[in-house]
């Protein structure tokens, strides 16, 4: 069973997690022109939440996330497919990259970015689903065992 919380881990997680998440965001946006991208960003992001989970337990992680991990997968898949469609509207094949410039702040927006965000969410969601579910499974098992042992103790005492 993963015991939530030693002091060092708790403090470290609190400090490291924002950094990791920011790095994930950086990787996600940098994938636009340079090495980086949705998948690796998703892994780094999932790493951040996994660290938090080791420090504070799965229930706290779920609270921190606010959304269900399955929703993340759904939205990610949805965004990724959405990014395939603009090509259709313009009479080009699916997944043809489209670039738009946002006029005032001078930022390029593109369908590959939307696709990357989708991948990011899918990876984040699926890794977290697996990690959190496994931990919860383990905890439930350990609690059952503990209860069993407590029961045995009582019979011993009697």
């Amino acid at each position: 069973m993963v015991k939530p919380g030693t002091l060092i881990l708790n403090v470290a997680a609190g400090l490291l997690m924002p950094l990791q998440l920011m790095f994930a965001l950086f990787l996600l946006l940098r994938g636009h022109d340079e090495p980086g991208g949705g998948f690796i960003a998703g892994l780094v992001g999932a790493g951040a939440f996994a660290l938090y989970q080791f420090a504070h337990g799965p229930a706290a992680t779920r609270r921190l996330l606010h959304v269900d991990t399955r929703d993340l997968i759904g939205w990610g898949l949805f965004l990724a497919i959405l990014s395939a469609l603009p090509g259709w509207a313009l009479g080009e094949p699916f997944l043809t990259a489209q670039f738009w410039k946002v006029p005032v702040i001078d930022v390029k927006v593109s369908t590959p970015l939307v696709f990357d965000i989708g991948v990011f969410l899918v990876v984040l969601g699926s890794v977290l689903t697996a990690v959190i579910t496994l931990t919860e499974l383990d905890q439930a098992e350990a609690e059952r065992k503990e209860r069993r042992e407590e029961g045995r103790d009582k019979t011993w005492n009697r």
């Binding site: 399955r70 929703d71 997968i73 759904g74 939205w75 898949l77 949805f78 497919i81 395939a84 259709w88 009479g91 080009e92 094949p93 699916f94």
Partner: peptide
């Protein structure tokens, strides 16, 4: 452009994403 060749892949994927949501 004949989109029907890609749609049999995209439609179930899309339905899957919606269903997941």
């Amino acid at each position: 452009m004949s989109y029907e060749v890609a749609l049999p892949i995209l439609v179930p994927l899309f339905a899957g994403a919606l269903s997941l949501l």
